[in-house]
């Protein structure tokens, strides 16, 4: 896999940073790829905009910052308006269906959305929406193998919540696979 840049955006408290961490861990520890994650530091608190940047590649990663993201996972309206213009042409945009209204959706990107919050609530815990998004990402993109991601989820979430989180991952993953069987939504 060539250098692939991923940006995850949402608001504080959604587990944005953890999502990036799990993706990176899946790629670099369980999928023998290279991964570099940069945390965006700032006076960010619960509820404010927040993002994680991740680069995944089969080759060692030299330049550590993302330049032109190929994959974007966006979980808030603010993140959508702020970050989606940066997405590389031909890139993949993954959004949380109920939290992001894709106004002025770009025609040069592939767009997929998932009601991750609703799924998370059905599983009993709204907090796992980020893991639903990860499962969804694993199904739609090739940035990380599903099993590698499951392993990373297992070791990265709080003890005692592994089953719930794996269920969340699988929910997102299944939904993604089904969606792929249909026609991609966007892509001009």
């Amino acid at each position: 896999m060539p250098r692939t840049e991923v940006k995850i955006g949402g608001f504080g408290g959604q587990g944005v940073i953890l999502s990036g961490y799990i993706l990176g861990k899946a790629a670099s520890i369980y999928d023998s790829k290279h991964a570099t994650m940069i945390q965006s530091f700032g006076p960010e608190a619960r509820g404010s905009a927040c993002s994680a940047q991740l680069i995944i590649s089969n080759e060692p990663i030299s330049y550590p910052y993302i330049v032109s993201p190929n994959v974007m996972i966006l979980m808030s309206q603010e993140a959508y308006s702020k970050f989606s213009p940066e997405l590389a042409s031909g890139g993949t945009l993954l959004t949380e269906e109920d939290l992001v209204v894709t106004r002025n959706l770009r025609k040069d990107v592939l767009h997929y959305s998932i009601p991750a919050t609703r799924f998370a609530e059905e599983l009993g815990k709204r907090l796992v929406l980020n893991i639903v998004m990860l499962g969804f990402t694993a199904a739609i993109t090739n940035i990380v193998a599903a099993d590698a991601a499951r392993n990373a989820v297992k070791v990265s979430v709080p003890k005692g919540t592994e089953e719930l989180n794996l269920a969340a991952f699988n929910k997102g993953f299944e939904y993604g696979l089904q969606l792929l069987k249909k026609e991609p939504v966007a892509a001009a």
Binding site: G24, T36, Q39
Partner: peptide
């Protein structure tokens, strides 16, 4: 700061 906050294997 970059190396300090960068996460890698």
């Amino acid at each position: 700061e970059c190396v300090g906050h960068m996460i890698e294997r």
